[in-house]
């Protein structure tokens, strides 16, 4: 059997067609290599970033660092206040952004009648997702801090970050609700359910996993967010913890912590990295490890959740 497709004799070295194919395929493979190199650049940056953090910060990362307050003496300083602050701020953010975001997503996907007004809301959601985070900080500075007089509190910070997370939750809700086939909606209505029953008994539970994934990704962004909290004037030197939300005496639950001044991990890191002394940069690296671990942990939970849902749910 002849190997050449275009020439009758198998002894001819290479036909023009074959030469052109070989040449064009070489170019194609070259691009493929460029793709791999691009991915490697991204991967190498990630590795370099993690290595830099760990080489500089790991020696400092110990129990004392996690359980100490900020201190003018670099070797004594720790991230306790920042860690607690980050957690409490996230609590406020989740408590506000998640219900509002899910509600907005459900409304836009299931209730809205298509008209100019709904188009206005749509444009707003997409634009809010693209507003630079520092602008939310300015909004919070003018609105929450001065207009509502909420001060430099955990509440202000939580609400600020909630504005940032809101579009993420809305988009996640809409996409996961949209993925539910309309036959299921029809089946529910056919059983005599009202719209709200259909939405809350069926759509929301079925979409819950995907929404949760979106919420976690949104929160993982918020926990690393620095700029909007700098503008509202988060303190970097906090040597106490806010009042505990759970009290030993009646009424057992206290909301005093909402008004407490605070710091969060990224702010603490920013403060340390801005200092000229190299001991503080070690602290910054150690805080960076804590922060990166938190966000990576949240991201991997989200990626894993999505993977599980994709495997189990096939509409």
């Amino acid at each position: 059997m002849a190997t050449s497709i275009s020439s009758p004799s198998s002894s001819t070295p290479l036909s023009p067609i074959q030469l052109s194919v070989i040449q064009r395929k070489r170019r194609s493979n070259l691009f493929s290599a460029a793709g791999i190199v691009s991915i490697l650049i991204a991967l190498m940056t990630l590795i370099a970033l993690v290595l830099q953090l760990f080489i500089q910060g790991l020696p400092k990362l110990n129990w004392q660092f996690l359980t100490s307050f900020a201190d003018p003496e670099a070797s004594l300083a720790g991230v306790l206040a920042a860690l607690v602050g980050s957690c409490l701020v996230m609590l406020v953010t989740a408590a506000t952004a998640v219900p509002v975001g899910i509600g907005a997503g459900l409304y836009l996907e299931e209730y809205v009648t298509r008209n100019k007004f709904s188009a206005l809301i749509e444009i707003n959601v997409t634009n809010l997702a693209g507003v630079p985070s520092i602008v939310y900080g300015l909004l919070a500075l003018g609105l929450f801090k001065y207009y509502f007089s909420l001060g430099e509190s955990i509440l202000t910070a939580g609400l600020t970050l909630a504005l940032l997370v809101l579009p993420v939750v809305i988009v996640a809700t809409r996409e996961s609700v949209r993925a539910i086939p309309s036959s299921l909606r029809e089946a529910t209505y056919a059983m005599g359910a009202s719209k709200s029953q259909m939405v809350f008994d069926h759509l929301l539970p079925y979409a819950f996993g995907n929404i949760l994934t979106g919420v976690i990704i949104g929160l993982s962004r918020a926990i690393g967010e620095t700029a909007p909290l700098v503008t509202i004037g988060a303190l970097t030197f906090i040597a106490f913890l806010p009042e505990s939300p759970i009290q030993s005496s009646f009424p057992f639950i206290s909301f005093e912590w909402l008004k407490a001044p605070f710091t969060v991990l990224p702010i603490q890191m920013f403060n340390w990295v801005s200092r000229p002394e190299s001991e503080f940069q070690v602290n910054a690296a150690a805080a960076g490890i804590v922060l990166l671990s938190l966000t990576l942990m949240m991201n991997s939970i989200a990626i894993y959740l999505r993977y599980r849902i994709q495997k189990s749910l096939k509409w």
Binding site: M1, T3, I5, S6, Q18, V21
Partner: peptide, 21 residues
């Protein structure tokens, strides 16, 4: 087999060559 000469399913034949004819 095309033109009694080439088996276009042969692994040695590049599919791009085939598609050019």
């Amino acid at each position: 087999v095309l033109d009694g000469q080439v088996n276009i399913l042969s692994r040695r034949i590049d599919p791009i060559e085939v598609r050019m004819r």
